[in-house]
Design a protein around this nucleic acid. Structure first.
Lengths: 212, 212
DNA sequence: GGGGCTCGATACATTGATGTATCGAAACAG
DNA sequence: CTGTTTCGATACATCAATGTATCGAGCCCC
């Protein structure tokens, strides 16, 4: 089922990588749909021959780029989970730490939104999309377990929390992309996340009912 | 500043409209970036001559389509606000009524996400985008004022509520597009909206503290 | 109901992107 | 260091899309 039965070597890996990085720029500048193989190759400093030796289509390259970006996002999340950072003291601080690990650049926003749109109309890709979302939710879970434990709370509804956070992340990312400079939007994002986390978690040993 | 100094007539308006509707299909099928003038014309039953007589580029058509879709969404919201529908009896019912007025189809999802991505990299369009978001938030306000009044509540933080709802709408729209069949996602959407509305509103005459 | 104007169809020239087939240089193994 | 393999560059043939210029039918107003 591996789609790349290529006799991979060192050189190959390097140029593949350069192509992917160049594509990132081009996609951001032109949009995925409008980008051409030539533009990508020019940005990478290669000719089209190099491209077709490594990929069969822009779609394929796009898929690899997506995989890389997703992996890096997950890795950063797991760093937070494993990290020996100083303890957080409230939910808001926990949220802030997690948000710092997530990319907010407009490039990433475009990539995700165009990929999602692309995936929705390309049957096989919808699964990839769904799988990624689940992976993110699963990576998010231990992070919040750890951080919430530091402030004496535990998650009450994992699934709902995961879904909410992903939705909030996507939704606010769009707002940030449109108004990148706005501090207000950024602050509101923290507030929204905090609300969600507090709603779907509870103190470990609830002192009294009315303190809920 | 009007970009269409065209001697508009009846015929013109009709073919423009058909072109826009055809483009909607084509964009959904191919994606905006991948669509060509020819494809749109073929779907509309016109030749390219007709197209260039009405628009100077696909971008321009896209903009008009966006304007129409946005207007129709706003109109539906205002219908809900003005409507003589039976009163809602709790926040959840209010949320359900509002969500019914909002489009959830994948076509709409693609249009919005591609437009947003497009707007982000096209300087002038970011303003259009921001303006639309504000318009939606402003249209949303009276709707919730009315519905919340029916259940004896009032909004405490308009701006935050508006931003949250738009973010939640966008975020869950993506989830619905990826998993259109999922009842769970749909239910979660209602839950999320309800949570936000309850958090950013309060009972009009709070009976007792502990009932909060 | 007829004359002038509008709009969409046709035809054309041009550009640009695609994918493939071939060749030479650089990488790698022994 | 040498033979072999691998990869990227070059060149080619093809196809598709663009935008414009022109023409004629239909619409609208008087």
């Amino acid at each position: 089922m591996s789609s790349t039965p290529k006799p991979v070597t060192r050189r190959r890996a390097q140029t593949r990588q350069r192509l992917v990085e160049a594509a990132r720029e081009v996609f951001a500048r032109e949009g995925f749909g409008r980008s051409t193989v030539e533009q990508v190759c020019e940005a990478a400093g290669f000719t089209r021959g190099a491209f077709y030796s490594n990929f069969t289509s822009l779609d394929e390259l796009f898929l690899e780029m997506w995989a890389q970006e997703s992996a890096s996002l997950l890795a950063r999340l797991q760093d937070v989970a494993a990290g020996g950072a100083p303890k957080v003291k409230d939910v808001r601080a926990a949220v802030e730490r997690v948000l710092e690990a997530l990319p907010v650049d407009t490039d990433w926003f475009q990539i995700t939104s165009e990929f999602t749109a692309h995936a929705v109309r390309t049957p096989g890709l919808a699964q990839v999309m769904a799988a990624r979302e689940q992976a993110i939710q699963e990576a998010l879970a231990p992070v919040f377990d750890l951080l919430l434990a530091q402030v004496g709370r535990r998650v009450t509804n994992r699934v709902a929390l995961g879904r909410s956070l992903v939705a909030a992340y996507d939704g606010t990312l769009a707002q940030l992309a449109v108004e990148p400079a706005s501090k207000a939007v950024r602050r509101h994002r923290v507030e929204l996340f905090t609300l969600l986390v507090e709603h779907y978690s509870e103190p470990v040993r609830p002192r009294r009912r009315f303190l809920l």
